[in-house]
């Protein structure tokens, strides 16, 4: 392979710097709108590639995140469009509205993730196993049901209950952030 152009190396470095700073939010945005983890990963990868390929045209005085989210939004719409051919998915109008909401919620995405980590400490061992199998290892519900000796419906129900509990816990912790700060904790709200 021929030696790489030094200018191209600088471009890689700049792109990586900007991208790594924003990748958590881009990923959160996509995952809020594409629910199957492997499909969300595909959309994230496609977004990353499009961003890289079009980076030469990115105006250097502009903000990277809005530019990147514009591309991510189109990739999400494209993802749903290709699935619309054979099944019902939300209308474009609604998807656009949900994308607006997701973009607006990104400001608190990292805080929500931190709150979620706290809340997960309160899960039972069995619930943590469920998280590991379903979310970490992408095991289908049917396989988990087989392992547990339960029905698929029971696995979905367990996921539903666990998610609802985590949702309420995260919401409660975020609400706590709007309360007066606890001076004894160094001016920071403490989550337990």
């Amino acid at each position: 392979m021929a030696a790489r152009d030094p200018h191209a190396a600088e471009e890689y470095e700049l792109f990586l710097t900007l991208f790594t700073k924003c990748q958590g939010r881009i990923q959160a945005f996509i995952r809020a709108l594409v629910h199957d983890p492997s499909q969300a990963d595909d959309v994230f990868q496609a977004t990353s590639l499009v961003l890289w390929r079009s980076f030469a045209t990115f105006r250097r005085d502009a903000e990277f995140l809005p530019w990147a989210l514009g591309t991510a939004r189109h990739q999400v719409l494209l993802h749903w469009r290709t699935r619309r051919r054979d099944r019902h998915v939300f209308s474009d109008d609604l998807l656009a509205d949900l994308a607006d909401v997701a973009e607006a919620r990104l400001d608190v995405a990292e805080t929500r993730l931190a709150a979620l980590e706290n809340c997960m400490a309160g899960l039972s061992e069995r619930q943590r196993d469920l998280v590991r199998m379903f979310y970490g290892e992408h095991q289908p519900a049917a396989e988990i049901a087989n392992r547990w000796g339960r029905s698929v419906h029971a696995v979905y129900k367990a996921l539903k209950v666990m998610r609802q509990a985590l949702y309420e816990c995260v919401s409660r912790k975020l609400r706590d952030l709007s309360l007066p700060l606890d001076e004894s904790a160094g001016g920071k709200p403490v989550i337990s």
């Binding site: 983890p37 919620r105 949702y167």
Partner: peptide, 11 residues
């Protein structure tokens, strides 16, 4: 978003 973030959690 919670559903997506669970997949990114340390657990």
């Amino acid at each position: 978003m919670l559903h997506g973030q669970i997949a990114l959690s340390t657990t």
